[in-house]
């Protein structure tokens, strides 16, 4: 791809999606768009850009936008949620679930799997504390394509160098040429399912901890409220909700309250979860029934 073609892509993506692509993202463009080109019977990225420049192929243009705007996921992305997991959520669960010794975790926007695997790694690192416990981790995403990748647990050299300490790479991955695959025991810890958050998800059951990061930002206000309310109904009173660094429940719902001093961490409001009636009243106050 020539610099001119790269510039065309930059301008195109900015106009179509607001995505700002810096000049050192060639590898990202390559890893995202080569598959799009192949699917459309085009051999090279130059060929892809030329096809876009000729215009008239909306399907191709949309595929390019979609491939480039899919949320990039890192291992231990933002660090804080995983510190919260190790220092707050896990100790709380080990205390409160001592009789059942069973904890259920849902990653509601699992994308290519880095978040559920990061949680799995936290549990491996805490092996001495969680011996004899059953942790069920469910990863869901809208896209079956990213779930396939998540399930395979195979990542590029670039992907394993963002957020993952080198010691953990050696400990939990096996090298396959230029790629790195998560070890089978970690892969076995996680169950994957395709799920659209706009649709009913109450059939998934109850979850003690819900990670729902960097996905609500894509929805309008009313949809955000609806999703948060439905998540609240799937959680026990002492459960935890984790949102993305730029997200909040404030102004959206009273079902959750922030855990003081812990950015991005929420718990059900006791009053709201004590009985069904106040929650119903609250839902109708938002115009939801």
């Amino acid at each position: 791809m020539t610099p001119t073609e790269y510039d065309f892509l930059k301008r195109f993506l900015k106009e179509r999606s607001g995505l700002m692509l810096s000049d050192d993202k060639q590898y990202l463009v390559e890893s995202r768009l080569v598959p799009v080109a192949r699917k459309n019977g085009i051999d090279t990225l130059s060929g892809l850009v030329q096809a876009m420049q000729r215009g008239g192929n909306a399907v191709l243009s949309n595929a390019v936008v979609e491939a480039m705007t899919t949320n990039e996921s890192f291992f231990f992305r933002d660090k804080t949620p995983f510190e919260h997991f190790n220092n707050i959520m896990l100790p709380a669960m080990l205390e409160k679930r001592a009789s059942s010794r069973s904890v259920k975790i849902w990653c509601a926007a699992a994308s290519t799997g880095q978040e559920p695997y990061s949680i799995g790694i936290c549990l491996k690192e805490a092996a001495h504390k969680v011996a004899g416990w059953r942790f069920r981790i469910l990863g869901t995403d809208l896209s079956s394509e990213v779930l396939e990748k998540a399930k395979a647990g195979i990542y590029s050299q670039f992907e394993v160098q963002r957020g993952l300490p080198i010691q953990m790479l050696l400990k939990y991955f096996a090298q396959q040429g230029d790629l790195w695959q998560i070890n089978p025991d970690l892969r076995a810890m996680i169950e994957w399912r395709k799920l659209n958050l706009l649709e009913n998800f109450s059939h998934l059951g109850e979850f003690d901890i819900v990670f729902c990061r960097n996905v609500l930002i894509y929805f309008d206000q009313q949809t955000k409220i609806d999703i948060l309310q439905r998540i609240a109904k799937m959680m026990p009173e002492d459960g935890f909700l984790v949102l993305g660094a730029a997200e909040t429940v404030v102004g959206l719902t009273d079902a959750f309250q922030p855990v003081p001093g812990q950015r991005g961490l929420y718990q059900l409001k006791q009053a709201a979860s004590a009985t069904a009636a106040p929650r119903l009243a609250m839902a109708s106050s938002f115009g939801l029934k």
């Binding site: 050192d24 590898y27 670039f158 160098q161 963002r162």
Partner: peptide
């Protein structure tokens, strides 16, 4: 490298994000 006392390890090629992350 780790045994010899390296604290972290970047595999080339690298970019700004990787250096920053490491």
């Amino acid at each position: 490298a780790i045994r010899a006392g390296a604290n972290e390890y970047i595999m080339k090629p690298f970019d700004r994000e990787i250096v920053e992350a490491k």
